[in-house]
Simulated scan of single mutants.
Amino acid sequence: MTSGMDAYIAQQPEPQRSSLTAMRALLGGLLPRAEEAMAYGAPAWTVDGTAVAGLSGSAKHWSYLPHSGSVVATLGDALSAYETSKGAIKVPAGETLKKPLVKKLVAARLTELQMVPDAKGKVRDFYPDGGLKAKGAMKNGELHGDWQWWRADGSLMRSGSFDRGRQVREWTTYDRSGIPVKVTDFGR
């Protein structure tokens, strides 16, 4: 089955198609645990449902989309060779961005998302490869409600609940295969 991203890239003219294909491979390597998706009609890499990076084709160029209104400004001089807007970096057709620059763009976006409540009030922490490190909620700046932590390999490590920063109820620690190895009851 052809994905939306496959179809999008296939319909691009050359040399944009080759540039987008190369960038897809680069982003896939930098964000191996991100999901390929379509966001706003263009290819995107999402982590826990939030777009971290994206691409779009155009008649005379292609664009890197950080899915943020502030990442481009954060990188400032590193992007001086490109035409930019608040939400896009225009790259001439047939060219690609260098891996160190893309790593900086991805890192800036992940940093922007860390421990900031999303639309559902959840906060997340990430590993550099886009994998989730932790996920839960906060109340008045303190951990509150159900939380989960993952190892760098993506396996669930621990889950438990907080009441305004204090551990409550049962906390479970898991081995790498997801089997509970320790349960601690912190009461109410």
Rank of each mutant, 00 (worst) to 15 (best):
R166E: 13
V183N: 03
A53E: 05
A25F: 13
Y127T: 11
D175P: 06
D77G: 03
F126T: 09
A10T: 12
P15T: 06
K120W: 05
L113G: 03
D185M: 01
G178M: 03
L132H: 08
Q16D: 06
S161K: 12
I9S: 04
D163Q: 10
R176E: 08
A42R: 14
T172P: 06
Q12E: 08
T21W: 08
L26S: 12
Y8A: 01
A51M: 10
L156D: 01
Y127Q: 07
L30Y: 07
D125H: 13
V91P: 03
G160I: 02
A37W: 14
G178T: 11
A42N: 13
K90H: 12
R151H: 03
N140T: 10
I9T: 09
A10L: 06
T21S: 12
G57F: 05
V181L: 03
P66L: 00
M138D: 00
T2F: 13
T46Y: 03
G187K: 02
R176V: 13
R17V: 10
R176K: 15
G121V: 05
V123G: 00
A119V: 14
K122D: 00
G160D: 02
Q11H: 14
R17E: 01
L75V: 14
A88I: 08
L97C: 04
T173I: 14
H61W: 13
R188T: 14
M38Y: 11
P128M: 04
N140P: 07
A134Y: 08
R164F: 01
P117V: 01
V106W: 07
H144T: 00
S70V: 10
P43H: 06
M5K: 10
G49C: 02
D153M: 04
A44G: 05
P32K: 03
R188L: 09
H67M: 01
S18H: 14
